[in-house]
Amino acid sequence: MTMTRTLPLSPRRQMAQRALRHRGLILSGAVLLAIVLIAILAPVIAPHDPYRQSLVTRLRPPVWLGGTWQYPLGTDALGRDMLSRLIYGARVSLMIGLISAGVSMVIGTVLGISAGYFGGRVDSFVQYLINVRLAMPVILVALAAVSLLGGSLLIVTMVMGLLLWDRFAVVLRAATMQVRSMEYIAAADMLGATQPRILWKDVLPNVMSHLIVILTLEMAHAIILEAGLSFLGLGVQPPTPSWGLMISEGKELLLFDSWLIMIPGVALFLLVFSINMFGDGIRDVTAPEGRN
C-alpha cells in the first residue's frame, strides 16, 4: 500500500476551501452582498423619493395585485412609494445592525477576554456585570431609555449597542479561558512576550472565529430589535423609512391591505435570515468539529 501522504493545508487555506464548498455560506453571502449594494446605491436605484407624499396615489396595490409598474410594490397610506422606502429602509437596518453590534463587540470583547484571561477578581466582576445586564429586560430598558432620551437614529443605535454586549462577553470569556490554559500561552510567557502581546498575538486570533460568529448573530439581533422598537413607536421616528416602522404603519390597515405589512416583513426576514445563515456558515467553516 503505497500512498503519498499529502501535507494538510494551512489553516487559512483550509478555511477558504471549506468556505467555497459551503452552499449556505455562499448563498447567504450573495444575498447579503446584494442587500448591501442596494443600500449603498439607494439614491441611484430608488424609483421615487421615499419621503414624497401624495394623496392622489394612496394605497396603490403592488403589481401582482393589480397595480402598475409605476409603483411595483404599491404605495402606503400617505402615497409614498413602497419600493423606494424599502430600499432606503435597508440603509437604516444595516447601519443600525453594524454600529450597534460594533459597539457591543468592543464592550463585550474587552470584558470577556479580560475575565477569561485574568480570572480571579476581574472574572468575578465581569460575571457580575453580565448577570446585571442579563437581568434587565432589553426591550423594556431600550424603550424606556429611548422614550426618556428621545428617539433619534443615533440614540436607538447607541442604546442597543450598550445593551447587546452580553453574548460577546459570555462566549469570549469561555473561549479565552480555554485558550488561556493552553501551553502555547505559557510558552509565550516564558519567551518574554508581554501580556498585551500575548493577548494580541496568541489569544485574540484563537477566539476570533467565535467573535465573528457572535458579531453576525448580534447584528441580526439588533436589526430585529430596532424593528420591534420602531413597531412599538419608540424607535426610529417617522418619516424615516425603517422596516419596523413600515410594518407599524401598515398595522392599521392589516385587515384590508395586508401586503403593507407583508412586504417590509419579508424584507426584514430575508436580511436577518441571511445574516444568521452567514454566521452559521462561518461557524461551520472555522470550527467544523463544532457541527458534528
Binding site: 405589512i261 416583513g265 436577518v272
Partner: peptide, 26 residues
Amino acid sequence: ALFIAVVGQAIPSFWFGLILIVLFAV
C-alpha cells in the same frame, strides 16, 4: 430541524403575530 431553527430566529415576533392574526383570526 436546523433550517427551521434558522428560519424561526429570523422572523420578527411582532410581524409573526400579525401574520397569525391575518391567517387564523381574519
